[in-house]
Design a protein around this nucleic acid. Structure first.
Lengths: 232, 232
DNA sequence: ATAGAAAACTGAACACTGTTTAGATTATGA
DNA sequence: TCATAATCTAAACAGTGTTCAGTTTTCTAT
């Protein structure tokens, strides 16, 4: 009869769902994601632990949603770092440094997104995060521009090159997070050096044997092509 | 009176201690270190869980010992890969590929040694593992040789350069372990490409701002100097 | 307003986890 | 033989994710 009731109920459900995520996020950021428990979340929202299970299938589902959040945050962070950089090479540089920087600003998100194996869904659906569709497309376009400007070697596959750069920065990020450096050592300097080394290497005639998958990096190329077409 | 009793008791203690480590290692390798529990270890050695605590202060202590084992294994693996390679640059290459390869042969050890944060002692004492004293010294010496042969740029700091190479390979190893690649993508090719890229970069005049700590990499230099002196 | 249905929530339990402690058992030394 | 010392265990504590029977609340239709 009253049409608004279903909607109000749905709004209420969404509100509680969001409260669960907020509680999880706060615990996650302050205590580390290893120290988030269903009972702690339940305490925060003043519900019983069992109640959460009518909003999320499992604890992993909550973390998966937080990971998605992390990918959105990361995309924003990188876009914010490169949007006013006109030069393709510098934009690439700043973008990759921003990727590394994200691991320091949001270590918990970063570990969940790129390192952790306890939430299998994140590994499984890794390529599906829209982060890749948008952000990597722009980065690949910058690499292409660098090749055209002869700043990078001609035989370079942009998608493969991006993958390599990304993996390198991931390595630095992780030794920083996992604290596998001596007290005096500066991971920032390491990040800088590795990045410059890789960029310098791309100006020589290195060949790539790695083939980046269609669904992620090359699909992103199509997206940029479409983007260029739209702006034409 | 009977002098041998204390010794026999100590032997027995050592035997049981070793049995605990063996049980832990087997569970660790087959089920993953996240799935090793004190109760499972206790079941295997047919003792009560509490008994283990008179041989190890905590579960972390067991894992720390397994990590030490891992570092010995890794050192052996790398030495085995490079011992018959005469050329310094190739030796460096093979050594770094062996480091990456170790992450595939012993993923559980690798994650425990280089990624995991749940055993704080491993992060804390990371630089003290003898692995660094020996293996990194030889790698740094190879880098020095490459510089002398003008295969690498002159201004290079061998310790810093090694750190950079190591971190790069660590990145590839981790995306492999954490399965952050699309199904078709080959982490081996990625490892190869990144390594060649970095080596190519070192032949250009890149500058390093990173300062490797005394206690780990530079201390290793001293060890190699001593080594050279001993063989003279 | 009231009965019935549906949705929401809880208490208690299950099977785990690392760790501690008091007590029982066994081996040793005089 | 008897006390001491070493060794091992049962039980418990506080925590974990998850499930389920049952209660409470909310909505719908008469």
């Amino acid at each position: 009869m009253f049409m608004g009731i279903k909607e109000r109920q749905q709004r209420e459900r969404d509100r509680i769902r969001e409260a669960i995520l907020t509680a999880a996020r706060e615990l996650f950021v302050s205590d580390g994601y290893r120290n988030v428990s269903m009972r702690k979340i339940a305490d925060r929202i003043e519900y019983s632990p069992a109640a959460i299970y009518s909003y999320f299938r499992s604890k992993d589902d909550i973390f998966f949603e937080l990971a998605e959040e992390g990918f959105r945050k990361l995309a924003e962070h990188i876009v914010g770092a490169v949007e006013r950089v006109p030069d393709p090479l510098n934009r690439l540089r700043q973008g990759l440094l921003a990727f590394y920087g994200f691991s320091k600003i949001h270590p918990e998100y970063f570990e969940l997104m790129f390192v952790d194996r306890s939430v299998p869904q994140i590994s499984q659906d890794f390529q599906r995060f829209e982060f890749f569709q948008a952000t990597t497309a722009r980065a690949a376009a910058d690499i292409r521009a660098c090749i055209e400007r002869t700043e990078f070697s001609a035989g370079l596959d942009p998608a493969a090159a991006l993958h390599i750069l990304w993996v390198g920065m991931l390595g630095v990020a992780i030794i920083g997070l996992a604290k596998r450096l001596a007290p005096g050592e500066d991971p920032d300097a390491l990040a800088h050096d590795l990045l410059e080394l890789m960029l310098a290497g791309f100006s020589t005639s290195v060949t790539t044997t790695f083939v980046a998958s269609e669904c992620a990096f090359h699909a992103a190329d199509a997206l940029v092509a479409k983007d260029a077409h739209d702006h034409a």
